[in-house]
Computed example of a mutant assay.
Amino acid sequence: MNASEGDLAPQVRSILSAARARPGGERRLTVDARSFPAAVEATESEGRVPLIAEVKPTSPTTDGVRDDDPVELAREMVAGGATALSVLTEPEHFGGSTDSLERIRDAVDVPVLRKDFVMNETQLDVVESDLILLIARFVGDDLSNLVDAAKDRGFQPLVEVHTKDELDAALATDADIVGINNRDLGKLEVDLGTFEDLASHVPDDVLLVAESGVKTADDVRRMREAGADALLVGTAIMDGDVRENTRNLSSL
């Protein structure tokens, strides 16, 4: 199920090449994770929409760089009602760092997702987080082993999919959290219909996250009506006042 390099956008091929070359951790981690499902339940009990707000300095699909202190951005997102945070640790293309993740996780009390391109088991051991992203398309047949390895360390793996085949592969693992990415990582094109097409195939006992392309309150409602338990939002929160943007999208 590994994607052939030829059908990927040049930016994505560059990201994967860099990811494969990055070293893993020097020791096996043991993580005492903050529960993401419990945080989602608590948010919903308050009548708000569970949002994973993303600290994303830059990306291949956005213009410019946001150079605010990432810890202050994270605190503002939590103040705006974020259920959890996603922190980029990919350095070359997204301006992220493991240092930022460590500082943010120390500064907030919500679950923190490490968003990166983890390609092998040793890369799980680079930095502690509560959730860790595993992209089905890029890890291929190693997905189930990586899910197990992540859970053995105490991480909550968020398995990201974009197609029905990838979703089937994710559901065949022990993953409890699945994210449906509306962005085709091969072409970097976004279609909210992707989530709507796949969400109905996800069992009720799997926590389902809608990723990418959510910009407006209408988009939030659309994803929630299609079955999203939570939404991961990056650019729409980072573009402007992050506290106000988070509050607006989580207070529907």
Rank of each mutant, 00 (worst) to 15 (best):
P23A: 15
G24S: 07
G24K: 04
G24Y: 03
G25T: 11
E26K: 14
R27A: 15
R27I: 08
R27E: 15
R28H: 12
R28W: 09
L29E: 08
L29G: 07
L29T: 08
T30D: 06
V31F: 10
D32C: 02
D32W: 00
A33N: 04
A33L: 04
A33M: 07
R34K: 14
R34D: 02
R34T: 07
F36E: 09
P37E: 00
P37K: 00
A38H: 10
A39R: 06
A39I: 09
A39W: 05
E41H: 12
E41V: 07
A42F: 02
T43K: 01
S45H: 12
E46V: 02
E46S: 15
E46C: 06
G47H: 13
G47K: 13
R48W: 09
R48P: 05
R48E: 06
R48C: 10
R48H: 14
R48I: 08
P50E: 11
L51H: 10
I52D: 01
I52S: 01
A53G: 14
A53D: 05
E54R: 06
E54V: 07
E54N: 10
V55D: 00
K56M: 12
P60F: 11
T61V: 06
T61K: 00
T62R: 08
T62W: 00
T62L: 03
G64C: 12
G64T: 11
G64E: 12
R66T: 09
D67A: 15
D67W: 12
D67G: 00
D68H: 14
D68I: 04
D69F: 10
D69W: 12
P70C: 10
P70W: 06
V71S: 09
E72Y: 01
E72V: 12
E72S: 13
A74R: 09
R75T: 01
M77N: 03
V78E: 03
V78L: 08
A79P: 04
A79E: 15
A79C: 07
G80T: 06
G81N: 12
A82Q: 11
A84V: 00
A84P: 02
L85P: 00
S86I: 05
S86R: 05
T89D: 02
P91Y: 03
E92D: 15
E92H: 14
H93M: 08
F94P: 03
G95H: 03
G95Y: 03
G96E: 05
G96W: 04
G96N: 07
G96A: 11
S97H: 04
S97G: 11
S97L: 05
